[in-house]
């Protein structure tokens, strides 16, 4: 864990969020504060509502009640596009890359909101459009170097193995230079070595750019190593919130994981 990184004020607050699908209460009365610069892990058994929570944060799902306060602005729903504009980026549990595009182009899409050249200049690929393309390409190359995927930059992502795709998806999210990065099981299905790489990337991002990270992860070892704080969900309810050690010793959490009847 990075020792001298200062955790700041609350940057994102969820208040009393409820979300249901038909009869299923995916989230019931969830309140969470996310602090600036921290790494917050969300854990819980399958179907606990972890992915739904991320979807509420970046506006894919709209909660039936409750509010989201981000950087002082409160709203009860947000559109994915607005979330992106305000610096919230994410990756998905089932990789959501653009399969037909190269690694480079996938990561370039992450810069979309920062590109301004008008249609006319793009038709000519001159002037502003060209300069902008080169300038953003530089930034994207930095990310490619950081993630050590130089050799595959022109490969269509559909042809890459799973672990690399996860890395490219992280790259695309990073390209937006987000303030909050939401990672949905970034290490699922990886071997130890790949997990170590990914953990290092996450720590480095948090360290170097101060990016706040909310991550869902099943591997307890990884969670304990990476996170400053852990929130535990079970059946849509929050049953634990604290440092990794506190959570590890919380009886309710232990019960949920050991499958004690409710």
């Amino acid at each position: 864990m990075a020792g001298d990184r200062r955790i700041g004020e609350t940057i994102l607050r969820l208040d009393d969020i409820c979300l249901s699908f038909g009869g299923v209460n995916a989230l019931s009365n969830i309140s969470i504060d996310v602090k600036e610069h921290e790494i917050l892990a969300i854990i819980g058994p399958n179907g606990a509502g972890k992915s739904s929570l991320l979807n509420v944060i970046n506006g894919v799902y709209h909660p039936s009640s409750g509010s989201v306060t981000y950087k002082g602005q409160t709203r009860n729903q947000m559109r994915p596009h607005d979330a992106a504009t305000q610096g919230i980026a994410r990756t998905f549990q089932n990789i959501a890359l653009f399969k037909g595009m190269s690694v480079l182009n996938n990561i370039m899409t992450g810069r979309t909101l920062k590109m301004k050249a008008g249609f006319f200049w793009q038709c000519l690929h001159l002037g502003k459009a060209r300069n902008e393309e080169i300038e953003h390409r530089k930034k994207v190359e930095e990310i490619i170097d950081f993630l050590q995927i130089q050799s595959i930059r022109k490969t269509p992502v559909g042809r890459l193995p799973y672990g690399l795709q996860k890395r490219v998806e992280l790259g695309r999210a990073l390209a937006a230079e987000p303030e909050i990065l939401l990672l949905d099981e970034p290490m699922a299905g990886m071997n130890i070595e790949e997990k170590e790489d990914m953990s290092r990337f996450i720590l480095d991002v948090n360290d170097e750019f101060g990016t706040t990270i909310v991550l869902i992860e099943h591997d307890m070892g990884v969670v304990m190593d990476l996170s400053d704080r852990v929130v535990v969900l079970d059946y849509g309810k929050k049953i634990g919130d604290g440092t990794p050690d506190e959570v590890r010793n919380n009886q309710e959490v232990i019960d949920a994981y050991l499958g004690v009847a409710h």
Binding site: N58, V60, P80, H81, A83, A84, T85, A89, R90, F92, A96, L97, F98, K99, G100, M101, N105, T109, G110, T112, L113, R172, A173, A176
Partner: peptide, 16 residues
Amino acid sequence: MATRDMDVAAEIIGIR
């Protein structure tokens, strides 16, 4: 192309 390949993901990175 992003819209073609996966419109939900496109929207999340700020493409309308």
